[in-house]
Amino acid sequence: MKQPELGKKILELRKSKGFTQEELVEKCNINVRTIQRIEAGDVTPRSFTVKTILEALGVDTGIFFDSSIHEEEKVELSENDKTTLRVSWISGIFVAVFSSIGMIVELAATFSHNDGSMLIPTLLWSIPFLISLFFFLRGYHRVGKLFDNTTLVSATYIYFIMEVVITLITLGLVIYEVDEHSGVILPGIAIAMLFGISELILGIGILRLKDRFGSLAQVIGIIKVVLGVMLITVLLAPFAAFFVIPVLILEVILLYNILQKYTN
């Protein structure tokens, strides 16, 4: 159990026993200020400290931690939640496909001769890509809501907005005349940095799911954070591009696993 839930639980147990904080201090020999900060959720105590407090309250530590684990796991998905996650992971497959196509289109648009030939291909790619991305990110947004992961919730908004901006920049390169070489440098840097920020923040949000969904969420989170940093540096962006699709596939698998975990 993590803070602030741990502090609230200890506070409830102390009051149920009729102890004041000072009386609890006498029983467990822990500084009163420490007890206050634990109950307020300001600090995360060591397991030894929690065990000492529980023993002073006459609570079986094994039963306490087992029930805490079950409480954290106890999340029920509504039919609407399940539908959202189901649509999300399927949409993620389309995002992976359109992302592969998009890399080629964006590269061609960046170095095109501004004869308008890339406008239709760019529109045909960008519109279905953004639609698929919306439904894909909606799944992570729902997961963030379900598990009180505000970072993940915020990251989904930021990611989608950044992708819209990147798409507009790409369309701008197709529509307006720019110098074939110098005119694409700044837009290219902007695209890499915007995408990098998106990956970094979403990676942090997914990384925060590791306690519930294990190593897969941890691996995805770490890779996306590293990718984000590489893209933001711009110089390492070409190398990062090789990992975008593989990690996207892992994200789809993670959403599928979350759905299965709370469906079965």
Rank of each mutant, 00 (worst) to 15 (best):
Arg33Cys: 11
Glu106Ile: 05
Glu39Asn: 03
Glu71Asn: 07
Leu173Glu: 12
Phe242Leu: 12
Leu152Ser: 02
Gly203Glu: 03
Lys17Gly: 03
Ser47Thr: 14
Phe136Arg: 06
Gly139His: 00
Gly214Tyr: 13
Leu107Arg: 10
Glu76Lys: 15
Ile204Ala: 04
Ser78Val: 15
Val247Leu: 03
Tyr256Glu: 03
Leu146His: 07
Thr150Lys: 15
Asp179Ser: 14
Leu200Arg: 00
Arg142Ile: 04
Gly18Asn: 12
Met230Tyr: 04
Asp211Ser: 14
Gly102Leu: 01
Lys82Val: 10
Asp115Lys: 05
Lys9Glu: 09
Leu168Ser: 05
Leu123His: 01
Phe111Gln: 11
Met1Tyr: 10
His141Thr: 01
Ile101Thr: 07
Thr150Ser: 14
Glu180Pro: 13
Thr156Arg: 04
Ile53Leu: 03
Glu5Asn: 08
Pro187Gly: 03
Ile127Asn: 14
Leu231Asp: 14
Lys2Asn: 13
Thr34Trp: 05
Ile222Cys: 04
Thr34Tyr: 07
Val43Tyr: 12
Leu248Arg: 03
Ala240Asn: 05
Leu13Lys: 08
Glu163Arg: 01
Leu168Ile: 09
Thr20Glu: 13
Leu57Lys: 01
Ile222Phe: 03
Gly172Cys: 04
Asn149Leu: 07
Phe65Asn: 08
Gly139Ala: 02
Val229Thr: 07
His181Phe: 14
Leu85His: 00
Ile253Asn: 04
Ile204Met: 06
Phe19His: 08
Glu39Ala: 03
Val87Asp: 08
Glu5Ser: 12
Ser215Arg: 07
Ile169Pro: 01
Ala240Cys: 08
Pro121Thr: 06
Leu236Trp: 09
Ser16Cys: 14
Leu186Phe: 09
Gln218Thr: 09
Val164Ala: 08
Ile161His: 10
Thr233Tyr: 10
Thr170Ala: 02
Val174Met: 01
Val247Ile: 14
Phe136Gly: 08
Thr263His: 12
Val59Ile: 13
Glu106Thr: 05
Thr83Arg: 10
Ile204Glu: 03
Lys224Gly: 05
Tyr262Trp: 09
Lys8Ile: 08
Ser117Ala: 13
Ala40Thr: 10
Thr84Leu: 10
Val95Trp: 04
Ile104Ala: 06
Glu26Lys: 11
Ile90Lys: 01
Thr156Ala: 08
Ile101Ser: 04
Val165His: 02
Val32Ala: 13
Phe136Tyr: 15
Thr44Lys: 09
Ser100Asn: 13
Thr84Tyr: 07
Val50Gln: 01
Glu22His: 15
Gly228Leu: 02
Leu259Trp: 00
Pro187Asn: 04
Gly7Arg: 00
Asp148His: 15
Glu177Pro: 14
Ile10Asp: 00
Leu24Cys: 10
Val164Ser: 11
Ser126Trp: 07
Ile53Ala: 02
Arg37His: 14
